[in-house]
Design a protein around this nucleic acid. Sequence first.
DNA 1: ATGTGCTTTCCGCTCAGTGAAAGACAGCGC
DNA 2: GCGCTGTCTTTCACTGAGCGGAAAGCACAT
Lengths: 298, 298
Amino acid sequence: MAGNTSQPGRTVASRMLAILDAFDFEHPRLTLSDLARRADLSLPTTHRLVRELSCWRALEREDDGTYRVGLRLLELGLLSGLHTRLRDVAMPFMQELYEATRENVHLAVHDGGTALYVEKLTGHRSVPIVSRTGGRLPLHTTGVGKALLAWASPDVIDEHLGRPLSRPTTYSIREPGRLRRDLQRARERGFATTREEMTLGTCSVASPVLVDGEPVAAVGAVVRSGRLDLDRLAPPVIAAARGIGARLADIGDDPYPGYDRPAASPWGSTARRGRPEWPVSGDGRPHCYEVRAVADTS
Amino acid sequence: MAGNTSQPGRTVASRMLAILDAFDFEHPRLTLSDLARRADLSLPTTHRLVRELSCWRALEREDDGTYRVGLRLLELGLLSGLHTRLRDVAMPFMQELYEATRENVHLAVHDGGTALYVEKLTGHRSVPIVSRTGGRLPLHTTGVGKALLAWASPDVIDEHLGRPLSRPTTYSIREPGRLRRDLQRARERGFATTREEMTLGTCSVASPVLVDGEPVAAVGAVVRSGRLDLDRLAPPVIAAARGIGARLADIGDDPYPGYDRPAASPWGSTARRGRPEWPVSGDGRPHCYEVRAVADTS
DNA sequence: ATGTGCTTTCCGCTCAGTGAAAGACAGCGC
DNA sequence: GCGCTGTCTTTCACTGAGCGGAAAGCACAT
């Protein structure tokens, strides 16, 4: 927004988002300088933006001076459809599953080639485990991930198996052939399993939440490897997944329960669908800046 | 950021935040025009900012063209300390409380004179209820709210009782004298109760999560009015609250479990504490803009 | 003292952002 | 058919909001 910038074309908005992007699970608390470095911004610019974000409580400053994600962003994020629609509908079914198993219960969605954990129930008797609400784990080594992948369209499966797959443990399956057979078996039985493929010592069972045949989410339970009765876990897991799917289909796709939908408006061919692309992104930056008419540095 | 603005002094950052602020529980889905109206921005400006936000997935566009809070904001919000530290620590205790009661279990914090619900567990057998994760309810008509207020500093209590208090039902207590006695009784017994004060037909029991004597949160259970054994609910609620408090004190205030804190850095008197104030805010706008050197419109 | 790392403020230059205006498209009433 | 109304989208000339170098300040280490 103004002249004198060392990175012409970068918008203020993208700078703000870069600051927010600097936070992740490994870096939930950052100093101002960290933020500037990670967002690739000058210190004064970072300072100004961070102050405004803090003022709005998108960020909060701890006693030791580090910044972390603030209360306002949590409040806002919980308005997301993933939370208000999916999680709130799923919660009672997840509770039943928890009561039946007393084990970790997960709800995840497929996003960008990973399983995004939307909710996790856990008790003191449950196995300690790496997943966490808001975290991401691979599709091919987790129960919920396999369930999401197995019911995905063939294109998605092919595309995913084409990538290099991680191997968190020696039991992880990353050979496309074996994985394909595993997914096939999951489809046949109605649930996916993992056996120490993500973490040694734990196994899991998961089933997809289908709405109109689409796997919009997956529910799973994670247990100690000692329990050899994985198949006995399957019925309650499947029941929870089906219950959630039925309830989601029931309340319909769009209406927010208890909220009148805005007056239907004409959405012409003009209106783009899905995620809009920033006009000229290119250059592989994590986010999309408008880079227009940048003079050669000659 | 640029000239030609009808609202000199308003920053781009504040405009972006105004767009995000346009979303709330009553308005989780908004059209572009709605956003422009609610954020008090021109349509082209809104369009440009919203596109960038959508591109980053802070917003998502539904099939009918409305925007809603996106997955990225949920993911980011879940990095908040309220979630990673408080909720994740509290979850197992809340589960135990749920198992013991099979009723709605709440975790809330005090923020800005209201109770912000950070987590809510609910099953099919629980009473349907108005609270929701991410929602806010009054301090003086909810169990968790009363627990937070009762253990707050006298200043906070006085300040709160000085305001006009809402009265959702005929049983709501809003007379300062009665309320003060109610809070006193809560402190004496170690738990707060409500009897149809928020919603007809439901009662609640709640207890504060104390860390160094500070009520950092509160846990509560909400049941049907029919159950006259409110006092029998108290022990498990108190146990959960104490367990959470002890665990929080145990892991310490700052270290993020499993994460090495950034190298201790010198935090001098220069570093401000708490929420920074924007230099010149004034004029009662919802957010703080920098309004500097605005020429008279003469 | 001197050095290092952080945060914060200042200020002049300048291009990113603004919004009026115009275009496009869908539905509605007639 | 043909305006009319409500959306969303794009363009473009003007300009002040934003940028970052520089400097100051502060705390700790050596």
